[in-house]
Amino acid sequence: MNLAEIIPKEVKGWHREGDIEKYDRETIFRYMNGAGEIYRMYDYRGMEVLRMVKPDQPEVKIEMFDMGSPDDAFGVFSHMREGDEAGVGEGSEYRKGLLSFWQGKYFFCIIGGQETEETKQIIFELAKIITGFYKPSNAKPAILRLLPEENLNSGTIRYFNLPSSLNYHYFVSDKNILHLSRETDAVLAKYGESYCYLLCIKYPDNTVSKKAFVDFLSVYLPEVEKAGIYQVSDGKWLAIELMQKYVVIIFDAPNRQFAEALWRQAIAKIRNQ
């Protein structure tokens, strides 16, 4: 990782300003306070920051994060995205002066202090230089293939390993009752028009998946003891299944039919993989 090798000293009238800043897993808080935790939830190895300036224009900053693997570069991108694809790298989003994208094992943010026509142009120009430098991985985490396509809101797919990520997007419990860890792969996605979520977790072996299944039921749904579809409150249905290394849970389905259809599709995906 070396932004100095990638970005020329001058790009379309914009010049590099100052030294490249570097932050590791411990020092990232100096740069972005608590937001550093978002990267540390993944296999973040380090980051570089390069500033570009042009007279009468707000500063533009390039942040480059080494996420250790394409899976985790996608993971941190999926954690933050909210909007439409911007057509940069292997996945991207542009919002008012902030372009974020991933390519290979790297995640990038290019930020204009304020959005102007000029900052927007240089942001996409810098992204073009960066994406030309690194080869794409052409791969997303394998567990994404287990998501049923029908009613899937693809912009809401989140890939992660840790319980803090799950709770960020969908609070389940303050305890790690699903036994998520660096050894697990998990995907969460929204289905349909309401806030119905499907969570699929792959564990390292059948023992851990069974323990997670049993502990989740015992704490979250103590009134039941086996896989199935249950009404948990008015207008909220939950479905759960254990299949070898996998636990699948559907939260907040609007009715039994919706929960059951999604549940059956998810089971079929795992069975047929």
Binding site: S173, V214, S218, Y220
Partner: peptide, 18 residues
């Protein structure tokens, strides 16, 4: 299963909903 968990050592989404 750790029975202490069942005895509400922690808080879940459902606890808040209830």
């Amino acid at each position: 299963m750790d029975r202490k968990l069942r005895n509400k050592e922690g808080f879940t989404r459902r606890d808040f909903i209830k």
